[in-house]
Structure formats: C-alpha cells, structure tokens
Design a protein around this nucleic acid. Structure first.
Lengths: 236, 236
DNA sequence: ACTCCCTTGTTATCAGCGTTACATCGGCGA
DNA sequence: TCGCCGATGTAACGCTGATAACAAGGGAGT
C-alpha cells in the first residue's frame, strides 16, 4: 500500500525532475539533457528517473506533455474551438501548432523526429486533435478528398513547415510560410462551397446516389452493387 | 606529396568503410551504426575512420553521398531533366525524392532530422537542385509567388510528406499522398493552374462516407465494402 | 645509400552516456 | 519490539564517440 504522503512526495519529485529537464532542454539544448545532468539539476539520484519514468524516452514524453500543457494553458485558449466554423477552428489550431513549434525548437525537434519505432505520445495526441478537427470538416461536407488523406496532408504540411522554419536561422525565417502552406493544403482539400448543405443521412445518400455513376476508380460491378445497396437503404 | 598508389589504397579503404556503414545502416538500423561496428565490418581499426572522415558525422555524410549517388545512377536518370517542361521536371524530381526517402528510411531520417547545428551536406545539395528547378520555373514566368517562398514550400511539403509516410507502417501508407501534396503546392505556386479534379462528385462522396456508418438497412459487411470502395475511389 | 618525415596500423585510454544490480535505510504491521 | 518490505543511495556495467601515444613502413631529397 502507498500512503498519501508517498504519492504527494512522489508527484513532487516527479514534477521537479520534469521542470529541471525542461529548463535544461530550453537553456542548454537537446544534447545537454542527460540522465545525470537532469538528476543533478533536480537534486535527485540518477536511478530515480528510471523509477519514475521507466526510461529516458518516458522522461522526454513527460517533458513534452508538461510543456504542451503549460503552453495551451498560457494561451487565451478560448478561441481554439469556440468558433462554430470548422475551417476557422482548423486555422486556429494550425497557427497554435506552428507557434508552439517555433517557441520550443529543441522539444519539437526531439519529439517530431523520433527516428524509428513508435511515435511519441505527444505526436499521437496532436494527430488525434487534428483528426477531430478534420472530422468536423468532413461532417460539414467541406472536404473534397478522403478524410484520411486530408488528415495526412495537413499533418505533413505542418510538420514539414515547422521543421523547415526551424532549420534556418530565426532572423531570416519566412513567417508567411505557415499561412501559405495552410492555404495551399486547404485549397486542395476544401470544397469551396459546401456540396451538400443538408447533412441528414438520407439527403446525403440521395445526393451521393446521383453522382455515383461518375465516381472514378471503381468497376461497374462495384458501382452497381453500391447502387443496389443504396436503393435498399433508402427504401428500407 | 602523395603518390597515386597511396590515394588508390586510401580511396579503397574509404569506399570499404562507406560500404560497410551503408550495409550496417540498411540491415541493422541507425543505432547499429557505431564507429566500432563499422570498423570491424570494414576490417579496419577504429581510428582509421577518424583519419579518413574526421568525424562520425563525416562518415554519415559520406554514406549519404554514396547512397544518393548509387541511387541516381541506378535510376534511368534520363527523364530527370531531359524534358523541356520545367513543371514536368519538378514533378519528376519530386517523385525521385519521395521514392528515395521511402527506399532508404533510416538514412533519410538520419540526414533530414539532424537536430541542431548546420544541416547535412546532403540536405543542402538537395535544396540546391530544388532551387535550380524552382529558378527555371521562375525564369519561365510560371511562378505567382516569391521564388524563395516557392522553394521553401516545396521543400517543406516534400520533407513533411516523406517523414509522415515513414512514420506509419509501410502496408498502410497512402501512396497518393505525395502526388496530392505536390498538386496542392503547385496549385498555390504556379500561375497556370493545373487541372483540378471534379469537386462536386468527390465532395458528395466524402460527405457520404461520413454518414455511411449510420446508413440503415445494410449489413456491416456491405457497409465495410462500400467504405473500402469509397476510399479507393477517393484516393484514386 | 642513407636519413628524414609523412602516412598508416595498433593499442590503450578518456570522458560520458543510458541503464541496472545491490546494499542500505526507514516506516509499517504483528 | 521484531521482522519485513518497499523506497532510496551507491556503485558499477557495457557501451558510445573520440584521441593520445607509439611502432612500423616506405617514398623524397640529398
């Protein structure tokens, strides 16, 4: 059994280690974040890190989570999803993402370029929130490409843009690059006018049935089968 | 003075080390490429690496140069710049770049994600050839944005796309992502807009895909099949 | 032909890294 | 009070990149 005092001190020392690692990362760069340096800066022994985080990657993940949490809490954070417009929300999220990358260069490079193996929890978390935003676009009938395709395009563009910006000295960065990239992707992804304003299931199905014969990449048999199923679902 | 025999043997052992490092990188992954492992695999002593390459980064750069050289020589390499059309040349170069990244995952991740400091020679070389291609676009009056802006956009999109593709298991990679990203960037960059696919049909299909799970009167298998066909049609 | 010097080969070593085995201590239940 | 068990502290392991020190060899210049 673990007493409350234990967990409190445990969380305290955990927070202290994360803070020390964060400060070390920000001030001395990524290669200065060693287990020994972090332990000394936090006033603990080196093995403590492994008891609390299991691994150095675990420590990095905790640092990433902490930095992201403090960042989003530092923002006004109200305009992030309050708008009813899915496109505006996506733009807002994009700007926040790019700004975060430029504000925390070492951390972003550390978590975004993890060579092989599983991606970092921060990456999958970011992908998840992006996926939700893209889903809202799709549900509103604003996408003219596959949802997965849209997701990957935005993700690739954002990551590539941030890494490109980080790769050049900060005084000669093209700060409009982010907006330009987002515009380019949105231009290729969005249906300028919502194709089917009525998003009720049946209405969409009916609209879809009218364009089904023009759908590329399918065999006639597949098209016929889809038409039959559509008919059965609509007459249900 | 250095005699011809000296340089020959020097180049021989150098090539051997590079070959050993390349094979080690391809077969055992990036973290298996240590100075000792490379030296043992090449049949030389560890300090030889430092005499010939000065640094481990120098060795990595030499490996990158070698792999890229063999890659472009392995390609037909004729269609890379032979066409008079600058846009077609850019597309060809883009495809080659993406294909190279997917063919050499460890090497690409190694040279493209070099955290801080100067970028690798391979990166600046790639940026140089891209810059030349973009300059040809600008000289032909095909750009509607700044030349530097166009360069960075293509670079960001390419790097981000390759990293995104490498970040997911190879069997579920969206191979059309590269073309889609290039189309998106070219659409925002070129004065003459390339042909865009019919928007209404795809938009309706995408919207329909979002309501497909709620479609009544169908079996799960039928829904799954329709979803698969829809995805295939949309990713074309 | 002889010496000199530069290149190569070899060994040993350094400082640092992530990580772990092991002794030790302290508080808790019986 | 005793014994136990988990948290802590110490020391170490195996590995990394990187060099210093030194022996051996073989053309270059005289």
């Amino acid at each position: 059994m673990v007493t409350t005092q234990d967990t409190a001190s445990r969380d305290d020392v955990r927070a202290g280690i994360v803070a020390a690692a964060t400060q070390l990362l920000r001030e001395k760069g990524a290669n200065a974040v060693t287990t020994r340096a972090v332990a000394q800066a936090a006033g603990v022994q080196a093995p403590t890190i492994y008891r609390l985080f299991g691994d150095k990657d675990g420590l990095i993940d905790a640092v990433a989570e902490h930095v992201m949490a403090t960042y989003v809490s530092g923002k006004s954070a109200a305009a992030d999803v309050a708008t009813g417009d899915p496109v505006a929300d996506l733009r807002s999220g994009w700007r926040t993402h790019v700004e975060f990358g430029l504000t925390n260069p070492e951390l972003y490079a550390l978590i975004a370029t993890r060579g092989s193996g599983a991606p970092s929890p921060a990456t999958v978390a970011g992908l998840d929130v992006l996926r939700r935003r893209v889903r809202r676009l799709a549900a509103a009938g604003l996408l003219r490409v596959d949802e997965q395709r849209a997701l990957m395009m935005i993700h690739s563009a954002g990551n590539g843009t941030i890494l490109a910006l980080l790769g050049m000295p900060s005084e000669q960065r093209d700060l409009g690059l982010g907006e330009a990239m987002l515009d380019a992707v949105l231009n290729s992804i969005l249906a300028t006018t919502p194709a089917t304003p009525d998003t009720t299931t049946n209405a969409v199905a009916v609209t879809f049935a009218t364009v089904l014969p023009d759908l590329p990449g399918l065999t006639d048999a597949e098209r016929a089968l889809m038409a039959e199923w559509l008919h059965r679902s609509l007459t249900h």
